[in-house]
Design a protein around this nucleic acid. Structure first.
Lengths: 242, 242
DNA sequence: AAAATAATATGACGTAAATCATGTTTTGAA
DNA sequence: TTCAAAACATGATTTACGTCATATTATTTT
């Protein structure tokens, strides 16, 4: 069982230095007046990897922005199998739409991969912001469009590719979007076990381990969960579309 | 090779009877003044099943609304395998976001399943409409949110379920959302071959045929492509989550 | 530092589904 | 109506991957 979030660590933002939030595209585009207003409505929440932010089936109450850390979006089947649909990174929005429907339930669970900070806003404030500010609405449309493309690309890969290709695609995507340069290659910014990878590409932990062992032997990657390095991005790309 | 759309059948809409378009949620929410303005910018296009509306990799030029008929969204792999991501029905929007990015390319192909009518608008007019009309932007956000949920549910099913469960899920979804009552059960409104189904659930035509034969034997469905009837929706639902 | 827990590794075996092959039925075009 | 092309059907064989089992090595936690 996982603990509820530590609400004692939440706080209003109106006093925060505004430039701290400048890396969040949605906030950047607001006029400085409206931005003040929006900051009034946002609160900051802190979670650890043992918390859940919300669970599949919970009623939707807030619009969320990832401020710091990594959050995974998970769905599970009745038999307890899990599937990780998306890793959210700083600046990413979530529940930017489900909240639209009164009485809607969360279609999946949001779980921190480590320590994370989340900004959130209640439904009413969120929709008020969108109504006041068409540019913000367009920003949300862009974000949702990107998410939809990603989700459809993921479905395609799941439908057409072998497990090793799917895993290679995953590593390429993570390295490209979130990787940091490293003397040995590209380092992934979050702790990522073989089990996590398996859940992201629709296979079993054992299969993910076998494939990663092969990738390691072929000098495509090195390291394990805590420090995973992509050594040959081009090689992985080739494998992904072979 | 497929023909280009028959442009001779396109026409302005400003003279059309407005109530003909009342079944399209996005247009319904506009003020009658703004609605006139929007109708000026929309044109109607007609396509047949031998056309493509646009192809994967084409530059994005227009925002689209399905007025009549069914459109499938397809992606294909380098080796020629195809995967159908979504069936668009009347009222559905498409390319409501990709157009946002200058120079963006279509991530998939849009192909009619038969005769279809499409309303379209160029990028500039579309974004002007959104900027003038926050309610329209919110409507697009809702639509994209639904599409994202569907795409993620699809990815989950592809990741976790067997081929027969995926096919059962597909039939349940199509019957529920688009089916029409029929003396024998629920009739699906579009021509749908075993190959189409295979492409939608990430399997081969042979496997889809075998599974459908079993469904037929078990009185879950009857008929073929031209007239497909769902006879036991509850049975299919049970199978989908078994 | 020790103990407990989680992650990685590898083998043996079973099975769902792909592939290849060939035939029949249905649909649509000439 | 006839003919050609799709669509549907079914068997035989192969294969990628899941499942179960059992170690070994890393990480946390106490």
């Amino acid at each position: 069982m996982s603990k509820r979030p530590d609400k004692s660590s939440s706080n209003r933002l109106s006093s925060s230095p505004p430039d701290e939030l400048n890396h969040i595209p949605l906030l950047k585009i607001l006029s400085s007046a409206d931005r003040q207003r929006v900051l009034q409505d946002l609160t900051e929440q802190h979670y650890t990897k043992r918390d859940v932010i919300f669970r599949e089936g919970d009623p939707t109450e807030y619009f969320h922005i990832v401020k710091e850390g990594t959050v995974k979006c998970v769905k599970s089947s009745p038999e307890g199998k899990e599937c990780t649909l998306k890793m959210l990174m700083p600046g990413d929005l979530f529940c930017c739409d489900a909240a639209a429907f009164e009485g809607a339930l969360h279609p999946g669970t949001a779980q921190p991969m480590g320590d994370v900070s989340i900004l959130r806003m209640n439904k009413k404030s969120y929709f008020d912001m969108l109504r006041r500010n068409p540019e913000a609405a367009i920003e949300v449309i862009k974000h949702l469009g990107n998410r939809l493309n990603e989700a459809q690309e993921k479905a395609k890969v799941l439908a057409l590719d072998r497990a090793d290709q799917r895993l290679a695609s995953l590593l390429v995507e993570l390295a490209t979007k979130n990787g940091a340069k490293d003397p040995q290659g590209i380092k992934l910014p979050m702790r990522l076990t073989r089990q996590d990878m398996a859940n992201m590409v629709g296979t079993t932990t054992e299969t993910a381990i076998r494939i990663m062992s092969r990738f390691k032997r072929d000098r495509l990657v090195s390291g394990t969960a805590t420090r995973l390095i992509i050594r040959d991005l081009a090689g992985l790309k080739a494998l992904a579309s072979a």
